[in-house]
Design a protein around this nucleic acid. Structure first.
Length: 911
RNA sequence: GCCGGGAUGGCGGAAUGGUAGACGCGGUGGACUCAAAAUCCACUGAGCGCAAGCUCGUGGGGGUUCAAGUCCCCCUCCCGGUACCA
C-alpha cells in the first residue's frame, strides 16, 4: 500500500522522534552541547489543564512557536522550546469540589490528558524539562522567591531591591532612620515592626476585594470594571482586611520605563501603561478650620485659583471628624438632602451610595450627587473659604480620596457645580469660538493672580514652586497601580512559608525546610457565602494541628494559613525550564546567562488576555530577582507576540442558554436544535459557548499535519479567525497531491529524477525558498503555506520530481508539517532526520529574474503589459510603450506630454 | 468618553505608493466512471459587449500623486482594552 496513510506515518515518526530524544536540548556543560551555535529561547504561555481537554483553538500559538522552533533548529540554533503546566488555582479546586475528588487526583488526570493531546500535535518540546506548578519540587522555589521578597526592601535612592540585613546595617550605622526615629531609640519589637513594614512582601490592612461566592479575596487585576470577579462573574465587595501584599508599586517607574526596551506590540504596552497609570501633578494641602489639613492630589495645580469647593470620597476617614453639628449659615437646601443635621445627612448619603453600586454603575450618564459636610477649607492660593462636600464621584482608591474641585477646567466638577449651584471660575482662557462648559484645553491663565497670562506648563511649575516655598504642597507623581494583594483563602495553592509568633512577630520558614507542602485535609470545599458580611476564612484552618502549629525553642508559632494566588507559579516558570532538575538553586547562573542572554526570551507567544495580569506580575518578580542578582536581564520577555483566537459559531435557545453547536442543524436559513429554533452567535471557541471542536476528531479524519497546516493557513497568527471545518479539505488535498507527486501509488516507488529543475520551474523553486524563508522569519505562516501550494501545483505537470526540488521541498515543509516531510525525506534515502537537516538556501541569481512584465499606463490607467528584460533602458521602454497598438489607441498616436518610468516595472505616459 | 486595532469577491485571506483579489474554500462547466466518490482540466469581483475591449470596483466623502487598498484630512461601523483616575 502506497497511498498517503497519514495515521501510520504520523504515529510512527512521533514514536521514533521520542525514542531518539530528537528535541532534547543540552545545557552548557552538558554532553553534546555545542557552544558555537546561537541560542534561541522560544516560549509558549503554558496552559491551565482543565477537565475539558484541548480544543482546536488552544494550540494556535503552540503551532506557531513549534514551526518557529523547527525552523531555527534547521538554521542551526540551540533551540530551547519547553512546555509545562500551570495547575494550581480556582478551577481545579472548584472541579474537585463538584466531583468530590481531590484536586491532586483530578489535576494529575488533566495533566496526563493534556500531555497526550499536546504530544499528538507533534510539537517539538523538550519534554524532559516539563513540570507542573503543583509539583513540590517546583513550588519549593515559588516559596523560595516569596521568602526573597519577604527578606528584601526597596531602596528608593538606588531604585533597587536589597536584602533586609543591608537595611539593618545602614540603620545601625545611622545612615538611615525609621520614619524619623533613630534605630538605637527603637525597642526591639518596634524595630521588627518597622522592618516588617519595609519588606517587599508585607502584611497590611487594606481595602481588599472580597468575593464571598468564591470564598476568597482577589487582586485588583482579577476584578472587572463592573466590580465582579473575573472568574465566575460573582459580586465583589470592598472590605478592609489584613492581608499579604507585594510591593509592586515600588517598581512602577521601572515597569513603565523598561517597556521602551522590549519588542512588544504597542497595544500591550499601552494596556500596561494605562494600568500603571502614572500622572504627574502635585499634592496640595488645604487647611480645614479646627481640623488640621486635607491633602489632595491634582494634575492641574495651575488651576488652584479656580478651586471653588472640595470633595471627599464617602469613605474618607476625615469625613466624620470635620462634619459639623449643624448646617452653617448660607447652606443651600440642595446641599443637605433635606435632612436637618449634617451627620445624619452624610450617613444617609453613604448608605445610598453603597446601595447603588451594582445596578446604577452601569448607567452611562451618572448624575452628580453629594452632600455638604458643613465644613470649609481655605484655598491656600487666594485665602478664600470653600465648602467641603462628600460625593461618590471621588474615589477613595485613587490619589488621596479627596479633590479640589475646579469646575471651570474639569467636566465632572462643572456638572457637580451646576447641580449644586456652586461658583464657577475660569482660570484658563478658552479660545473665542469655544462654546462648551468646562474648558480642559490649552490657553493662558486668567483670574489666577500671579499666574495670569502663563501657559499651562509654566503655570503648573510656578504653582508648584509657590506651594513648596510656602509649605502648602509639593510636586508629586501619582499611580493607579496598587500593591499586589497576595493572600487567598483557598486550598489549592502554594502555602505561604511564614510563621506567626504569639505577639504577631513574623518568622520565615527556614529555606532548608522548603518545600512547605500543602497539608492533606478531608474537606477542601471553600468557605463560600452569599453574605457579603461573611468573614473570609482561610481553608487551611481545617488542617491538622500538627501542621498548623510549630514549636520553636519553646514558643508556639502558627503557620500562615493563606495560600498564594493563581499567578504565583506562572511568574517565574520560564526560568525553571532552563535548569528544571536543579535541587540546589532556582536556576544555575550558567544556564540562566546562556538561555536568557541579553534580552531574555527570544519569542513569547500567548493570549493577549494576560496583558496586565501575568505579564505585569512576571516582569515585577523578574526585576526583583534581577536586583538580587539571581537573573542577568532587566526584562524577562524580549519579544512578545500575542496570538489571535479561533472563533466559531455558537447557538443559543430562546432562554439564551447555549446548546452544543455540533448538534445544531441548518435548514432553509434556520438553525434548529432538537427541533427548536436557535439563534446564531459568534465568539471565542470554548466550553462556555459549547462550540468547541476536539482536535482528536480532526486527527482521526485528516491527520496532524493537515490540522497544523490548516490552522496556520487560515490567516495571520496575530488575528482572530473563524473556524470552518469545511475548509480543511484544501490543505488535506495539498498533502495528498504532494504525496502523489513524490510517490507512485501503484508501486510505492519514489518518483524523483536525477536531473535538477530547469527554466521557470528552477526559478520558481528559488523564489519559493526565498519567500518561505522571509515568511518564517516574520511568522507569516499563512503565506508560507500558500507558496508551498504553488510549488506543489507546478510539480503536477512533471513526470518526475526534479532532484533539487526533491531535496528542498521536504525541508521547506518540515517546520509546518513535520511528519510527511520526514517520511518523504527518508524515502529519498537521507541518513539524518529532516528535523536537523539544514534549511535550504536560494540562489540570488535565480531569484533575480531577467525578464519581467512591464506595465504601460496612459493617464494613470493600465493599457498594456509587455515582457521586457530587467535591464531595459528608459529610451527602450518608452519606444516599446509607444509602439504598442493598445497604447496608441489611447494616446491617439500623439507624443506624451510627460513620461514617468520606474523601470523595469512601470512606464507611465501622460497625454 | 478616552486609548489601541480593523473594514478588500459568496467565504478565509494576499498585495516594499507601481498589473487589486496570490493561495485556499465554495460555485459553474468538462474529462474519467455503468454511477458515485476521489482525481484531473477550464472558468469564477460587478456591469456592458459576438469579440477585441470598455466602464466600475478595496466601509463613505474629500485631498496629494503620472499612479492610492497603501499617504493626508473628515465621517460611519466593527473588535479589543479602559472608564467619575482628579
Amino acid at each position: 500500500m502506497a497511498s498517503y496513510d497519514f495515521k501510520e506515518i504520523e504515529q510512527r515518526w512521533q514514536r521514533t522522534w521520542a525514542d531518539q530524544g530528537m528535541y532534547r536540548v543540552p545545557n552548557p556543560g552538558d554532553e553534546g552541547f555545542d557552544p558555537s551555535k546561537p541560542k534561541m529561547y522560544i516560549l509558549d504561555m503554558f496552559p491551565y489543564p482543565s477537565g475539558a481537554g484541548l480544543h482546536v483553538g488552544h494550540p494556535l500559538g503552540y503551532i506557531g512557536t513549534d514551526i518557529f522552533s523547527r525552523y531555527h533548529r534547521m538554521r542551526g540554533a540551540n533551540v530551547l522550546h519547553p512546555m509545562a503546566f500551570d495547575a494550581f488555582g480556582l478551577p481545579a479546586e472548584q472541579y474537585a469540589v463538584e466531583t468530590g475528588v481531590h484536586p491532586r487526583i483530578t489535576t494529575d488526570r488533566n495533566l496526563e490528558n493534556y500531555t497526550r493531546q499536546l504530544k499528538a500535535f507533534g510539537f517539538s518540546y523538550d519534554w524532559d524539562r516539563s513540570f507542573a506548578t503543583t509539583d513540590p519540587d517546583y513550588y519549593k522555589w515559588t516559596q523560595w522567591i516569596f521568602l526573597k521578597l519577604f527578606d528584601s526592601w526597596f531602596d528608593v535612592d538606588l531604585q533597587t531591591a536589597r536584602p533586609i540585613p543591608d537595611l539593618v546595617a545602614e540603620m545601625e550605622a545611622g545612615e538611615k532612620d525609621a520614619d524619623g526615629v533613630a534605630w538605637h531609640n527603637l525597642a526591639p519589637a518596634d524595630r521588627a515592626t518597622y522592618l516588617d513594614s519595609q519588606r517587599l512582601a508585607y502584611i497590611d490592612e487594606v481595602a481588599v476585594n472580597w468575593c464571598p461566592a468564591l470564598g476568597t479575596v482577589l487582586a485588583n487585576e482579577e476584578v472587572t470594571a463592573e466590580g465582579r470577579s473575573e472568574r465566575g462573574n460573582h459580586p465583589v465587595y470592598q472590605r478592609p482586611l489584613r492581608q499579604w501584599m507585594l510591593r509592586i508599586t515600588a517598581y512602577a517607574d521601572r515597569l513603565l520605563d523598561d517597556l521602551e526596551t522590549v519588542d512588544w506590540p504597542l497595544s500591550v504596552k499601552t494596556m500596561q501603561r494605562n494600568w500603571i497609570g502614572r500622572s504627574e501633578g502635585a499634592h496640595i494641602v488645604f487647611e480645614v478650620e479646627g481640623h488640621g489639613q486635607l491633602k489632595v492630589f491634582t494634575t492641574r495645580p495651575d488651576t488652584v485659583f479656580g478651586a471653588t469647593y472640595m470633595v471627599l470620597a464617602p469613605e474618607h476617614p476625615i469625613v466624620d471628624e470635620i462634619t459639623t453639628d449643624s448646617w452653617p449659615e448660607g447652606t443651600k437646601p440642595s446641599w443637605t438632602l433635606g435632612i436637618d443635621d449634617p451627620a445624619t445627612a452624610i450617613e444617609a448619603y453613604r448608605l445610598a451610595a453603597s446601595r447603588k453600586s451594582e445596578l446604577e454603575r452601569q448607567i452611562e450618564e451618572r448624575d452628580k450627587t453629594g452632600v455638604f459636610t458643613g465644613a470649609f477649607a481655605v484655598n491656600p492660593l487666594n485665602g478664600e473659604d470653600i465648602p467641603i462636600f462628600v460625593a461618590d464621584y471621588v474615589l477613595m482608591g485613587y490619589g488621596t480620596g479627596a479633590i479640589m474641585a475646579v469646575p471651570g477646567q474639569d467636566e465632572r466638577d462643572w456638572e457637580f457645580a451646576e447641580a449644586f449651584d456652586l461658583p464657577i471660575v475660569r482660570t484658563v482662557q478658552p479660545p473665542p469660538d469655544f462654546t462648551g462648559d468646562a474648558y480642559t484645553g490649552e490657553g493662558p491663565a486668567m483670574n489666577s493672580g500671579f499666574l495670569d497670562g502663563l501657559d499651562i506648563n509654566d503655570a503648573k511649575s510656578k504653582t508648584i514652586a509657590w506651594l513648596e516655598l510656602n509649605g502648602a504642597g509639593a510636586g508629586t507623581i501619582n499611580y493607579k497601580l496598587r500593591d499586589w494583594l497576595f493572600s487567598r483563602q483557598r486550598y489549592w495553592g502554594e502555602p505561604i512559608p511564614i510563621l506567626h509568633g504569639p505577639n504577631g512577630e513574623l518568622r520565615a520558614v527556614p529555606l532548608d525546610e522548603l518545600p512547605l507542602r500543602l497539608p492533606e485535609i478531608d474537606d477542601y470545599s471553600p468557605n463560600v457565602s452569599d453574605d457579603e458580611n461573611a468573614d473570609p476564612t482561610p481553608l487551611l484552618v481545617k488542617a491538622e494541628d500538627d501542621w498548623k502549629y510549630v514549636d520553636i525553642d519553646g514558643v508556639t508559632y502558627t503557620r500562615e494559613l493563606n495560600t498564594m494566588p493563581q499567578w504565583a507559579g506562572s511568574c517565574w516558570y520560564y526560568l525553571r525550564y532552563l535548569d528544571p532538575n536543579n535541587e540546589a538553586e532556582l536556576v544555575s547562573e550558567e544556564a540562566e546567562r546562556y538561555w536568557m542572554g541579553d534580552d531574555g526570551v527570544d519569542l513569547y507567544v500567548g493570549g493577549v488576555e494576560h496583558a496586565v495580569l501575568h505579564l505585569l506580575y512576571a516582569r515585577f518578580w523578574h526585576k526583583v530577582l534581577n536586583d538580587l542578582g539571581f537573573v542577568g536581564t532587566a526584562e524577562p520577555f524580549g519579544r512578545l507576540f500575542p496570538q489571535g483566537y479561533i472563533l466559531a459559531d455558537a447557538f443559543a435557545d430562546s432562554r439564551g442558554v447555549y446548546v452544543p453547536a455540533d448538534e445544531v442543524v441548518e435548514a432553509g436559513g434556520e438553525f434548529t436544535y432538537n427541533g427548536e429554533v436557535v439563534t446564531r452567535h459568534y465568539g471565542k471557541m470554548g466550553k462556555s459557548l459549547k462550540n468547541s471542536v476536539n482536535p482528536d476528531d480532526i486527527f482521526d479524519e485528516y491527520g496532524v499535519d493537515t490540522l497544523r497546516l490548516f490552522e496556520m493557513f487560515m490567516g495571520p497568527l496575530d488575528t482572530s479567525r473563524p473556524w470552518s471545518t469545511r475548509d480543511i479539505v484544501g490543505v488535506h488535498r495539498f498533502l495528498q497531491r504532494l504525496w502523489r507527486n513524490f510517490v507512485d501509488e501503484e508501486t510505492g516507488e519514489i518518483m524523483v529524477s536525477d536531473e535538477p529543475s530547469q527554466g521557470d520551474l528552477n526559478v520558481l523553486l528559488h523564489r519559493t525558498i526565498e519567500s518561505v524563508t522571509t515568511d518564517m522569519e516574520n511568522l507569516h505562516f499563512n503565506t508560507a503555506v500558500a507558496r508551498l501550494f504553488e510549488l506543489n501545483n507546478a510539480l503536477v505537470a512533471e513526470p518526475l520530481v526534479p532532484a533539487d526540488i526533491a531535496s528542498v521541498f521536504p525541508r521547506l515543509l518540515a517546520p509546518l508539517a513535520p511528519h510527511i516531510a520526514e517520511e518523504l525525506w527518508q524515502r529519498l534515502g537521507k541518513e539524518e532526520s529532516v528535523v536537523v537537516a539544514p534549511w535550504p538556501v536560494y540562489d540570488e541569481e535565480l531569484t533575480a529574474v531577467d525578464m519581467v512584465t512591464m506595465v504601460v499606463q496612459v493617464n494613470g490607467r493600465v493599457r498594456d503589459r509587455i515582457e521586457v528584460p530587467v535591464g531595459i533602458t528608459q529610451e527602450q521602454a518608452v519606444t516599446l510603450a509607444l509602439a504598442s497598438e493598445r497604447v496608441q489607441a489611447h494616446t491617439g498616436g500623439a507624443d506624451p506630454r510627460k513620461v514617468i518610468a520606474k523601470l523595469p516595472n512601470v512606464v507611465s505616459l501622460v497625454v
